[in-house]
Design a protein around this nucleic acid. Structure first.
Lengths: 195, 195
DNA sequence: ATGAATATGTACCGATCGGTACAGAAATGG
DNA sequence: CCATTTCTGTACCGATCGGTACATATTCAT
């Protein structure tokens, strides 16, 4: 078997750069030029390695989901309690306003908004992302329920969906221009629904 | 003074059609062809009457906001109580999944997501929309507080922002594929935070 | 050295993008 | 009837869209 000429770039790094572009601009507004520039590769390499804009986008959605789930699970393990983890997550929407200018939100939810079900493949990846986020939150809630921080009588799955919903809402409000203090207030209030 | 040749179409109706297109597809994905077809006018008439795609979009955002605020205020007046109005609003995200296929969400919040602060004019219109929605909810909350349905000790402004946030989150989750029953469960749970 | 395999650079593709120029059509006032 | 004003149809604009063809460059196995 022959090896052929080696790649002159790191595909994982290029993928990461592409993800950033989609994250900032969305799918439609991210032109091939934007992507090529950010990925620092030529058009030939792009199509050779990633097939098409749409295929690249799918890989970016998966990368984002894996990365996000990994970060969330790490944060959950390090958190002093399940409830404190949830508080930190919800409040993070506020700090995002300061860190990113403008705030980027969540790539999965941004995509859910942009493709409102018009693309079956994308819809599937979005659904997968949403359910995995819910899963992590459910773990945190069950841990909090065991510790007596959250009413154990409530359905953890419903609570988890509520947290995902609120996260999504807060990130959207950040994009809509809500002040960081207001976001924090809403995040704290949202926590009270967990009982 | 001379009147000249009269318009062969209803500008308000055309604007409404355009709004539908932006609502379904977003700004970038709504091509001029999409718009012209939906508005049933020619390119000449389009530029003569609406100036450009971007100007048209601004007018659509305003139309949507006015329409939405009007509908919400009417619903509030008809509702048996402030709290029941809030319940109906939050639950409406679920019925939207059934009615529209796929769900369209809220044009203002969709726009906040699509243009993450990259367009100052649009950002301003989005902010105006968000604050007017908040205003209506604040009216409902104050009414509910007067009636003793909601803890009068809580800040109505914060509660109102919380409701807008939750509405936005629910509509996004609907787009992300959440089932109608799950949406209703989350909506009910969200209401408990109002105290 | 040669050939197979893989990667890149360059040039190009048709389609579509948003937008404009301008001639002709339809109304009014004189 | 004519001039003026306003609207519409047609043709066109340069730019960009995502994507492809193909020659050239670089590697490894023989």
């Amino acid at each position: 078997m022959n090896q052929g000429r080696p790649l002159e770039f790191d595909p994982n790094l290029a993928l990461q750069r592409a993800m950033e572009v989609f994250w900032c601009r969305g799918y439609e507004a991210a032109s091939l030029q934007n992507l090529l520039t950010a990925m620092a590769i030529s058009k030939s390499s792009f199509y050779q390695t990633f097939g098409s804009k749409h295929e690249l986008f799918q890989r970016c959605l998966q990368l984002f989901r894996e990365r996000q789930v990994r970060l969330m699970m790490a944060a959950l393990e390090q958190a002093p309690s399940g409830r404190e983890f949830l508080r930190r997550m919800l409040r993070s929407a506020a700090s995002e306003v300061v860190a990113d200018e403008p705030p980027k939100g969540c790539l999965i939810m941004n995509t859910a908004t942009e493709f409102s079900g018009r693309d079956a493949i994308v819809a599937d990846l979005v659904g997968k992302g949403a359910s995995q986020f819910t899963e992590v939150f459910r773990c945190a809630i069950e841990r909090a329920q065991s510790a007596g921080e959250i009413d154990a009588g409530k359905d953890a799955e419903v609570l988890a969906r509520y947290v995902v919903t609120t996260m999504s809402g807060l990130k959207t409000m950040a994009k809509a221009g809500m002040q960081t203090t207001a976001i924090e207030d809403v995040a704290e209030l949202a926590l009270t629904a967990l009982g």
